[in-house]
Design a protein around this nucleic acid. Structure first.
Lengths: 196, 196, 196, 196
DNA sequence: CATGAATGAGTCTTCATTCAT
DNA sequence: CATGAATGAAGACTCATTCAT
């Protein structure tokens, strides 16, 4: 009827609705009934597409990470130096957060609730994403751009942590004192001077 | 009988128990009954010391932050240069995480569950802590140690983010590939080269 | 299967069960679980039909009053004199109490427990019922049947109080010394001689 | 110290406090702790004077009824005719309600909550009080003042019900349209014309 | 007599999940 | 595929009562 892309119509509607609801009330305080209502779907319908409530959150995360990783790799593919790639990574990460507030909020905050996630979820997708950083650093060390003493496995945590905290700041602060591009600039400056 | 320090005996026992239980099962999956049992106290007794379940988490956080801020300031007070202070801050932060795993886990993970916390809690204590970093940077800019172009308000987020992510890594990874002192060293190297 | 009138089946079953349970143990000592069990319904089901425990009591009262008012007005409609109407009101009121003991007990006793009811509940339905009396008296004063000095607003309280106390007596006494029809007769005699 | 009548000081303070609290929040919603606080007494102290929470309500009622019965009998003793006595009973009953609002509220409303009271409590004191009415009627029938056909056992319920409902009206209505003395007058007129 | 900290049984209510239609 | 009424397990919280001091 009013569906053009057929099969995944409902599934997508549920995911979008879940992102909105989770971002509004948090994972634990959100109810499946509320997500169903927001998606204009019956409560039971959700269980035709997702195993359980946790599964919605996991899917939300994995779908998003897949998109982000794909887009990020594409952005980086055209660049020559490792420095350019690091700068682009920083810019793009923060831009993605900005473009999709609701989802970002969910990932920044709610995702960390589920013990499954932080303690049990192996998080391949997440690791893949963060490993983009270490592979750039590796590349930079091989071609002499970056200091050989830096351990990529640690440096990736250092940079990702900075970006994540900036994202948090961006998502949670009501009045943002600094623009995202300024944040990107300075973070790039600090990190790159630091590892060169 | 079995009480030596009197008044705050029960309150402390409940807090310790809560830290253990929260760290084991997460905030939402922990029950008040379980905390009570772990503290060897009746369920109702908890409500003599805390307003509700949320209040236990908040108190856990605030108590710990107060201690951490106090200790941190003392550690820093004897040092001369801003660089030394930054290095000490990094070392001490990671060391504190290491010394008190359970509490760290709670603060790293569970605290972020409560929407109250991340979205509504004004978090003076937390801000105070992070602001220690920006005041060191300020100091370093005044005496010429650090680059004047760096904006302390952003740099503090950058460094805190790195430390926080390292802490997360430290708390969550089962097999830690890098020692804490190595992490501290490299983080200090990167950040300080970055802002000098 | 075992449902013949469909939609309101459960709702009615819950109300009937509540009347039984309340009449047995009183409102405060009755538990929602017990009502559910008596209605052969899951605990949670009750909350699909009623906002909370108080709401069950309120509904019980309002539903009953609506029925009573309807029946009473119908009974009175065919009568000519105000005196006949007063006598019929008295008879019918006591008869209704007698016909539905459980509900009467709830309304006589349990209803008065909820402060909401006696102090805050505006009680339109209840007022409507009692006002039937004053309008009959008014009518009787207009056509010269009753004494003009009687204030209908007070007289209605006087008569309703008598009937209510008789109902109480009827509901609570184990051994009833006087028949309902005798009570109705004498009450009518006293009240009518009194206002003529 | 600040006690002049010794022994019953605390007991009285608790009873007064209970009357205030019950009248404010109702019996079931009042807590023993709140009564203790209002009486400026420790929670446990209450159990030195009363068996349990129910016992406070019962005592409140019985103490008050004893006083009321004593006062009522004294008022009536000087009067000659049964008619005068009925009128005095009506006036005094309503006046007592008016003089002690809080207690009246408790007795009018809260007392009826406890199933013990309405269904199990034998209520000697209460019966004694209501029987004052029937004995006056008896007396009036013997000396020819009242109609022999009236059954005192029913008439007492009729009059007491009227008075009780008027009391209720008086206690619960915010804006009282009719003065107590007018109510007393009309009630007396109706009842007395009715039984003469 | 008085205290008030401690107890723990008891209850309402929520909500993820199922399943008959 | 879709529905949404029904389920019932689970948990936060209250409060009358006790008892060591």
């Amino acid at each position: 009827m009013n569906s053009t892309n057929g099969i995944n119509d409902k599934r997508q509607r549920i995911l979008k609705a879940a992102a909105r609801v989770f971002s509004r009330k948090g994972f634990y305080k959100s109810t499946v009934a509320e997500i169903a209502k927001e998606a204009q779907v019956a409560d039971g319908t959700i269980y035709l597409y997702f195993k359980n409530k946790d599964d919605i959150l996991i899917t939300l995360f994995e779908d998003e990470m897949a998109t982000v990783i794909r887009e990020m790799k594409q952005e980086l593919s055209g660049l020559d130096t490792a420095e350019q790639k690091i700068r682009k990574f920083i810019e793009k990460h923060l831009a993605l957060i900005d473009e999709n507030r609701e989802l970002a909020e969910v990932i920044q905050i709610e995702l960390r609730q589920s013990h499954k996630f932080m303690k049990e979820y192996s998080g391949t997708k997440f690791r893949d994403y963060v490993n983009i950083i270490s592979s750039i650093i590796n590349e930079g060390q091989k071609n002499g751009e970056f200091n050989q003493d830096i351990i990529p496995g640690i440096a990736k945590i250092v940079l990702f942590g900075s970006l994540d905290e900036l994202s948090n700041y961006w998502v949670l602060s009501k009045r943002k004192k600094y623009s995202l591009s300024l944040c990107a600039q300075i973070t790039g400056d600090i990190f790159l001077s630091g590892i060169k």
